[in-house]
Simulated scan of single mutants.
Amino acid sequence: MAMLDVTKLSISFGGLRAVDELTMQIEEGGLVGLIGPNGAGKTTVFNMLTGVYLPTEGGIRLDGKNLIGKKPADICKMGVARTFQNIRLFPKLSVLDNVKAGLHNQVTYSLAESMLHLGGYSKKEKDMDQRALEILSVFGLDSSANDLASNLPYGKQRKLEISRALATSPKLLLLDEPAAGMNPNETGELMETISLVRKKYGVTILLIEHDMKLVQGICEYLYVLNFGKLLAEGTPAQVLNDPAVIKAYLGD
């Protein structure tokens, strides 16, 4: 059984069919790309996977459990985390506290503990600091732990957003254009980091990306959307040499 099983997933906005009967499966530990031209429906798929949009039709199962109709916070607790095409950090919080925000779905306090710092509050905070620093070290951000997130260079802000998503201990990590705005050197570092994260944490990854060098470098399998429909699927070599895919990206 696939970890993520998407069956005939569809959504309409008014009379527009934004995603039309998308079916895809991702095995545990896989690293899969969802690609296609701008406006193909890729981010809309992510919004359905995370409960932001309710599909018009179709099914989504994670380890056999239905995600349709669940709230985004509940889907996160079930093991799905994401990043965004436009970075959504807490700019006035420290790098460390941004990652700790991701850890809070796993740690709970009573009202008295949180207000008066009673009971196990201090130990829980210390444990979260340690866990957050461990994650930041994977991304080379531990030395910037006390810096404001807004003061990080753009490429490091991208990495911080992935760090925060990883802090929720996801089974499935959805990366929405993680290399957007990065220079070639930063993209190369990001490729190495994503591969390391997958190996170290055993997380399954589905990513949207326009940088074909990154896609070819790390993805094992690709799904291609065009006008909301599945245009092609297969290995990167198969898909990126498909005439229909080339036409969709480049036109006639």
Score class of each variant (00 low, 15 high):
Met1Ile: 12
Ala2Asn: 11
Met3Val: 03
Val6Asp: 12
Val6Pro: 08
Thr7Ile: 11
Phe13Pro: 10
Ala18Gly: 13
Val19Thr: 05
Val19Ile: 13
Asp20Lys: 05
Glu27Ser: 13
Gly29Cys: 02
Gly33Met: 12
Ile35Asn: 05
Gly36Ala: 13
Asn38Tyr: 00
Asn47Ser: 12
Asn47Gly: 11
Thr50Gln: 07
Val52Cys: 09
Leu67Phe: 07
Ile68Ala: 08
Gly69Ser: 07
Ile75Lys: 13
Val80Arg: 09
Val80Leu: 11
Phe84Lys: 02
Gln85Lys: 14
Ile87Asn: 02
Pro91Val: 01
Leu93Asp: 10
Leu96Gln: 03
Ala101Ser: 12
Gly102Ala: 07
Leu103Ser: 11
Asn105Ala: 13
Asn105His: 10
Leu118Asp: 10
Leu118Ala: 15
Leu118Cys: 14
Ser122Arg: 10
Ser122Lys: 14
Lys124Phe: 07
Asp127Glu: 15
Arg131Cys: 13
Ile135Gly: 05
Leu136Asn: 08
Phe139Lys: 01
Ser144Pro: 00
Leu148Glu: 13
Ser150His: 11
Leu152Phe: 03
Tyr154Met: 12
Gly155Glu: 06
Lys156Asn: 14
Arg158His: 13
Arg158Lys: 15
Glu161Ile: 02
Leu166Asn: 12
Leu174Lys: 02
Glu177Leu: 14
Pro184Lys: 09
Glu186Ser: 04
Met191Ile: 03
Leu196Thr: 15
Lys200Gln: 10
Val203Lys: 01
Thr204Gly: 04
Met212Val: 03
Leu214Asn: 08
Gln216Val: 00
Phe227Asn: 04
Ala232Val: 07
Gly234Asp: 04
Gly234Val: 00
Ala237Phe: 07
Ala237Asn: 07
Val239Leu: 07
Gly251Ile: 09
Gly251Cys: 04
Asp252Phe: 00
